[in-house]
Design a binder for these strands. Structure first.
Lengths: 202, 202
DNA sequence: TAATAGTATTAACATTGTTCAATATATTTG
DNA sequence: CAAATATATTGAACAATGTTAATACTATTA
């Protein structure tokens, strides 16, 4: 019965690959059961032999995008000094990734998770993503500075919330209106949040 | 030709009223051209004589919801002392309104504005809404304390971004998982942001 | 090789946004 | 006031989409 599992995984992989290609290429607009199936080289009905519905398929891609995003970020911030500065760099790269791939932003933050099932785990994955990316850096800071852990978790949350908020306004409401202005706002906001580390040292 | 304008405005009003009723009642899920028209007592095709498409109609409701929201908030914060404390209260009431009416949240933050046209004005209205609600209080603070206006605009933005981010995560990603916990997080975050006023006094 | 189980596909349905020609209504004019 | 004209309203129809169910196909096994 192992063959069956392998084949099933392979089939799921084909559809997921197709979904990811469409998402990153044509965008969320263009993706629907028929286009995914066409890209995968199957009929649209075949999809339903492997996924409960199209939402399940689409949300299964979250993992892969997170890995891709994490890899891109790691590369980008390599040369930044660890700790506070690298956290800033990670947050900026995190935001930049979603600006580069608007449909991934939509998938992560906008698209409604359908029925129950894998609901909470996926939602949690998304919520803790930025924190996970910064985990080493926070550990580094805790080791080298003497800061109340309450303050740290407030700052972590603030970074996460401000990032999501800025992305939401920029992607969905074109605010600020230009990319340059957006970048400046990111810089300002992230610096403001991280500067609390100084005043929080006890 | 004035009669014609009056009649047209009246018709628009019927459809907008129907849309608002459905939005606040059944939610965004249940609203579509046919249900709106039925609620208004017309055929779905009639709608297209007054609005370019359904998106235009739906986004025209933003104004009314903002007024309703502003009225609710004003009532709620009346007894709070002006200045810093009232800003906190306004921000909390602002968030609470969207939690109470999830489809208004969707309309304001999630729903894609269609083609160009009234795009930017509506987006701007939404972005500056919280700032507008707090305008008097900020004026009060500037009068009574000596604070760099740069710092104030950073704090304003932060309040706006964190509010949007918290709402986004709570409404779309169930994070935090419980309402009580959500309220506590709001409190924590808003206090943290507003406490910067103290350190910013020059 | 024939029966069976599993897989893939086509056909079909429901829902939605939108357009358009036909119908009903209102307004103007002789 | 009645005919002619303009306007408003409407149901029919189309396209796109998600989903299901019956049918065709393929591979396994007795």
């Amino acid at each position: 019965m192992v063959n069956k599992d392998i084949q099933e995984q392979r089939m799921k992989g084909y559809f997921m690959q197709a979904t990811k290609e469409l998402l990153k290429g044509e965008g969320l607009r263009s993706i629907n059961v028929r286009s995914i199936a066409a890209q995968a080289g199957y009929s649209y009905a075949t999809l339903y032999n492997y996924f409960r519905d199209v939402k399940e398929l689409v949300f299964l891609c979250v993992n892969d995008f997170q890995e891709e995003c994490a890899a891109e970020i790691r590369l980008k911030v390599e040369k930044t000094p660890p700790g506070q500065e690298r956290i800033k760099a990670i947050a900026k790269a995190y935001i930049a990734y979603f600006v580069q791939y608007p449909s991934v932003f939509n998938l992560f933050f906008i698209e409604k998770l359908g029925d129950i099932g894998q609901k909470q785990p996926t939602a949690n994955l998304i919520f803790t993503f930025l924190d996970g990316l910064c985990a080493d850096e926070w550990a580094y800071i805790i080791q080298n500075k003497n800061i109340d852990s309450k303050d740290i978790s407030t700052i972590k949350l603030q970074l996460n919330y401000v990032s999501a908020g800025m992305l939401l306004y920029y992607m969905n409401r074109i605010q600020p209106a230009g990319y340059q202005e957006f970048i400046e706002t990111i810089d300002l906001q992230i610096n403001a949040i991280m500067s609390r580390l100084e005043t929080a040292i006890s």
